[in-house]
Simulated scan of single mutants.
Amino acid sequence: MLWSDPEDEPPKDLRDMQETLRRLGLFMALAMILAMIVIGLR
């Protein structure tokens, strides 16, 4: 790899979007678990 090659890192907005999607996925998983518990307790 040459020193003049661009970095292999995605642009900042793409990284921000990936981080947001990861947080949203985690939140959705927690919400589903909570919903299952609530439904199970009824």
Rank of each mutant, 00 (worst) to 15 (best):
R23E: 03
R15A: 09
F27P: 12
E7W: 01
K12E: 11
A31P: 13
L2N: 13
D16I: 03
E19I: 01
R22C: 10
L21V: 10
R15T: 14
A31H: 08
G40Y: 00
W3Y: 13
D13C: 02
S4N: 11
F27Y: 12
E9F: 01
P10W: 06
G40S: 07
A35S: 04
I39P: 11
I37V: 14
R23K: 15
L26H: 15
M36T: 14
E19K: 02
L14V: 01
G25Q: 05
L2M: 04
R42T: 15
L21M: 05
E7C: 05
L41E: 03
T20W: 14
G25T: 01
L34F: 04
M17E: 08
S4R: 10
M36N: 07
T20P: 06
E9L: 00
M17D: 12
I37W: 11
D16G: 08
L30M: 15
T20F: 09
I37K: 05
L24W: 09
S4H: 10
L21G: 07
F27S: 01
P6E: 06
L14D: 12
I33P: 12
T20D: 04
I37S: 06
G40D: 00
D8Q: 03
M17I: 05
M32Q: 15
M17T: 09
M1K: 03
L2Y: 09
L14N: 02
R23C: 05
